[in-house]
Design a protein around this nucleic acid. Sequence first.
DNA 1: GCCCAGGGTAGTA
DNA 2: TACTACCATGGG
Length: 269
Amino acid sequence: MKRLIHAPDFSLDETIDSAQVFRCRPENGGYRVRNGRREFLLTQRGDTVEVQTDNGITQAEIVHFLALDEDHAALCERLSKHPEIRTAIETCRGLRILRQDPWECLVGFICSSCCNVPRIRKVVASLCDAAGEHGSPAFPAPGSLPPEEDLRKLGAGYRARFLHAVNISTMRAWLNGLRLQEFSVARRRLMSLDGVGEKVADCVLLYALGFREAFPIDVWVRRAMEAVFFKGRKITARHLQAFAADRFGPDAGYAQQFLFHAWRTRRNR
DNA sequence: GCCCAGGGTAGTA
DNA sequence: TACTACCATGGG
């Protein structure tokens, strides 16, 4: 089924290239994106996004996934009041934070540790090929990831132990229930999982559970923050976290996403 | 061939 | 609380 959706202040390229979702590839001038049980073929022309997807999905669900219900212009206006990050906002305008499936997000970011983005995509893809029926768009459900030794052979390396741990212990209902908790409570509960520290927890909170105040700190965000706010001095993650919460509050997640994407793609100057 | 990558954990000071 | 070694491996 094909739909046309009005999407002002939206950039498909910036959104997909900013490494939130890992199952995506270019196709026909757009992208084929898989997340959770959904599959989309997305193409943008001006203010219009063409979406080809399965019959079951509603227009409202697509708008929700792409975060087109957010007031992006107002967000950029608020963030642009911080001159230190203005370049990042302007060069990546239209970058939206998708609302993705929590389980796939959790697994993807456990895979991400000490990997570059192309390798994360590869590991996630091979993991899906091994677990699911080949060609199925659905991400393997909790409990149906390959056994630990297979995960290791698929290229997961030392992350295989962590993947196995969440595979046998985590359930969808538990993850979804975290949406109703306070940010700090949900964060602590995610971090109680073996292999989930502050960074991975913050990614799941931000990209999948709706906590836009979450501020994941990876090597790029650390570099960006130290450069633009602290004259290149080394700052502890704890301090950066508090600083971001104080500066950006509920927009911290978006500030992070703009900084990450601008610096990783070397458009910070 | 080398440096680095969307980290987490356990141990130590 | 902060710093370190270790974990495995491939992309550029």
